[in-house]
Design a protein around this nucleic acid. Structure first.
Lengths: 196, 196
DNA sequence: GAGCAGACCGACCAATCTGGTCTGTCCACC
DNA sequence: GGTGGACAGACCAGATTGGTCGGTCTGCTC
């Protein structure tokens, strides 16, 4: 029980740090900020990750893992509403468990403005939706970015309010509708829950 | 022509400062950051607003004005899809002209997490959609927050990429769909453009 | 063309904040 | 009763902070 506990603390640190990096950027997030968010002293936090850079790397690596997991579960579906739906459900489940990390993954995509982007791993997620920021045409690009922005914000809010299960279906529905596939509900492809 | 020019510079400062405040929070945004974003030296910026606090107040006041303007143009419509649509179009137009200020207005609503919220003026906007974060039921609350998150991100991105007119309709459509009123297009209430 | 005001900048300052270290303390387990 | 892991407080040198001061440059007015 001691090992899982340590791992649990570490994951908590990574996700909260990621949330701060996503919102403020790495440079503007101090070690003290992360420590406060986790409920540790600065020294206590540095006991888990020996330096700020080490923490950053661990966060990025974890985000990368999650991004790959999402892409992995959708990669073989053909583009279309069914794939979008599937990608959304997988991503929402991951995000409800790790909202900060997903927010960080989506940060480059949802902050196309601003010239201080975290060099994070949004590409994996965008790939899951078959989108390339440079070439994808406006209608689709706008809808995907809009849906992902909503997803990032809503999962963070749900997590903070402890509403992860209660809000899940509403979040998925909201984001899917944002993508703009107009179909009667009955025709919507069904996809089972996915573990996060 | 000298007075309008000054005003134009000031508005540019306010919007860019607001964008930074929205993303990083007031405390984590330095005067130098704002100056860089505007293309002035720190001293040059402090020539327009005598202190960081003065700048903050000016930003908040401006955000308040815009929020009131939005609410003003929807306040008399009865709740429902037509009002939502109208509120969305007005808000999008304001946001395409002042994306940073709108992002700041929406920050408290779209960052229900995090305990360092700017005491900004999201209430006015939420009022426009008939939403109260405390009492509104999850389905509606989730959809409105999702739609507003998408709106904030998309207008910032559009502004940064100089796509304000090209993206407008897609942004409105995305956010409206996110709100989840399922109706055939033809029945959608029409609302004229509104100047921002 | 002297004078003036407004827009702007570089150098500077005291105060605070930064990442990181060192020296503990507490506690579970052997 | 010793050992090691999980933490915290005090501390440090250097960077960043908001803000001031003196100055330049432009355009305008008389």
């Amino acid at each position: 029980m001691t090992r899982p506990f340590r791992q649990q603390v570490d994951e908590g640190i990574l996700d909260r740090a990621a949330a701060l990096f996503a919102r403020r950027g790495f440079a503007k997030t101090s070690v003290q900020d992360v420590a406060d968010a986790v409920g540790l002293s600065k020294t206590g936090l540095l006991h888990h990750y020996p330096s700020k850079d080490a923490l950053h790397e661990a966060v990025l690596a974890q985000a990368d893992t999650l991004g790959a997991r999402v892409l992995d579960q959708v990669g073989d579906l053909p583009p279309g509403p069914a794939r979008d739906r599937r990608a959304l459900e997988v991503l929402v489940d991951v995000a409800l468990a790790h909202p900060g990390l997903v927010a960080l993954m989506l940060a480059p995509a949802t902050q196309l403005h601003a010239r201080d982007p975290e060099p994070a791993v949004a590409d994996l997620v965008l790939q899951a939706f078959g989108v390339d920021p440079e070439t994808t045409e406006p209608p689709r690009l706008v809808r995907v970015i809009g849906a992902l922005s909503a997803l990032a914000v809503l999962t963070l809010a749900a997590h903070a309010r402890d509403r992860t299960t209660a809000w899940r279906q509403h979040i998925v529905a909201t984001c899917f509708d944002a993508l703009g596939h107009r179909r009667p509900d009955a025709v919507l492809p069904h996809s089972d829950q996915v573990e996060a």
